[in-house]
C-alpha cells in the first residue's frame, strides 16, 4: 500500500483542475479587462524598480498592497473558498500582507538599488510574476481565458511581491513582508503541480531564489 512518501500532490487536493481553472476563467470575465491591464501594470512596476525613487516606490507598494486586498476579497473569499475550505486559513495572512504593504508604502523612504545579485533576482521575479507566469496556460493546453494574472490571482501576485519587496524593503520591513508571499509561493506551486500544471515549478523556483537572495542579507 502507499506510504506517505508515495502520495502525489494531487492526492492532497480537494478539487479538480477543471473546477479550479473554471473559477479562474470566471473571475477573468467578471473583472475584465483587469487581466488585460495586468501585464501593462507589470511593466510599469518593473520601470518603477528600475528607477527607484521615493514616490515611485510608494506608488508601486500601494498598488501591490491594494492587489493583495483585492485578490483576498475577489478570489480567495468569494470563489476559491467554496471549493477549498483550507483557504479560510489564508484569508488573515493575505489581509495582513496587504496592510503591511500599504503601511510600507506610506512610510518607505527612498532606497538605493540593492546588491546586484539581489536586484537581478528581484527583477526576474517581477518579470516572472507579471509576464511569464500567466503564460502557463500554453503549457497546460488551456484556453487564454484561463490565464492567471498577477492583479487577479494569488500565485503570480506572490511571486511579483517577492521581487518588489526584495528590491525595495530593507531590514525589518523585508523580514516582515517576505514570509507570507514566500509561504504562498510554496503552497501555490505545490497546488499547481497537483493540478498537473508545470508552471508550479516556476513558483517553487521563485520561492527558492527569493530565499537565497534574502538570507545572506539578513545576517
Amino acid at each position: 500500500m502507499e506510504t506517505l512518501f508515495s502520495y502525489h500532490p494531487r492526492d492532497l487536493l480537494l478539487f479538480s483542475p477543471r473546477v479550479y481553472w473554471t473559477l479562474v476563467a470566471g473571475n477573468n470575465e467578471v473583472y475584465w479587462p483587469l487581466a488585460l491591464l495586468a501585464p501593462v501594470v507589470g511593466l510599469w512596476l518593473m520601470w518603477t524598480l528600475a528607477k527607484l525613487g521615493q514616490a515611485r516606490q510608494r506608488t508601486g507598494l500601494a498598488v501591490l498592497g491594494a492587489a493583495w486586498l483585492f485578490v483576498t476579497w475577489s478570489f480567495l473569499w468569494a470563489e476559491y473558498r467554496s471549493i477549498n475550505w483550507a483557504i479560510t486559513w489564508a484569508i488573515g495572512p493575505f489581509v495582513l500582507q496587504g496592510c503591511l504593504l500599504l503601511v510600507l508604502a506610506g512610510t518607505a523612504g527612498s532606497t538605493s538599488i540593492p546588491a546586484r545579485h539581489r536586484y537581478l533576482i528581484a527583477m526576474m521575479l517581477v518579470a516572472w510574476g507579471t509576464l511569464i507566469h500567466p503564460l502557463g496556460f500554453l503549457l497546460d493546453d488551456r484556453p487564454l481565458g484561463e490565464a492567471d494574472s498577477w492583479l487577479l490571482f494569488p500565485d503570480p501576485l506572490s511571486i511579483t511581491t517577492l521581487g518588489v519587496v526584495l528590491a525595495i524593503a530593507r531590514g525589518r520591513w523585508l523580514a516582515l513582508s517576505l514570509p507570507i508571499p514566500l509561504l504562498w509561493s510554496l503552497v501555490g506551486g505545490t497546488t499547481l503541480l497537483g493540478l498537473g500544471s508545470p508552471i508550479g515549478w516556476g513558483m517553487l523556483a521563485g520561492a527558492g531564489l527569493a530565499l537565497a537572495a534574502w538570507l545572506p542579507l539578513t545576517r
Binding site: L13, F15, R18, V19, T22, L23, S82
Partner: peptide, 12 residues
C-alpha cells in the same frame, strides 16, 4: 470526492 466539489458554478 473531488468530482462534485464544483463550488457555485451553475454549469458544473
Amino acid at each position: 470526492w473531488i468530482t462534485f466539489n464544483v463550488g457555485d458554478n451553475q454549469r458544473l
